[in-house]
């Protein structure tokens, strides 16, 4: 019984997160400005990180946590670099 509840809610949560990723992708393609696209990328990687954490609960292995942590680290650095580029036209001053 409890496993049925858990597996259904994990499935629903994964569908919701996939839809959230789709929303971020649509905004990334539609723009209209470069800053909207960068923020779309930022939202996209955070949603994918959450999707990986949820997948870790589905499979019961802790390895997906490390993948999620790496996505978080690399996504943050790339978003900051892109934002700096938008502001100044160069990444490192």
């Amino acid at each position: 019984m409890s496993l049925v509840i858990l597996s259904w809610s994990v499935t629903i949560a994964q569908i919701m997160l996939a839809l959230a990723m789709a929303c971020a992708c649509v905004r990334m393609f539609r723009g209209p400005r470069a800053q909207d696209r960068v923020m779309g990328l930022d939202t996209l990687y955070i949603n994918s990180m959450l999707l990986l954490l949820t997948h870790g609960i589905r499979t019961g292995t802790a390895i997906y946590f490390e993948a999620a942590l790496i996505i978080g680290l690399l996504g943050f650095v790339s978003s900051v670099a892109l934002a700096k580029f938008l502001m100044r036209g160069e990444v490192i001053e």
């Binding site: 496993l3 259904w8 629903i12 949560a13 839809l19 959230a20 949820t54």
Partner: peptide
């Protein structure tokens, strides 16, 4: 399983709401 489901659905729902607003 009830607590895990609750927190999962709240978290995923809030994330989806935020992306829809975005």
């Amino acid at each position: 399983s009830l607590m895990v489901s609750f927190f999962l659905l709240v978290g995923a729902g809030l994330t989806l709401t935020g992306s829809i607003g975005f």
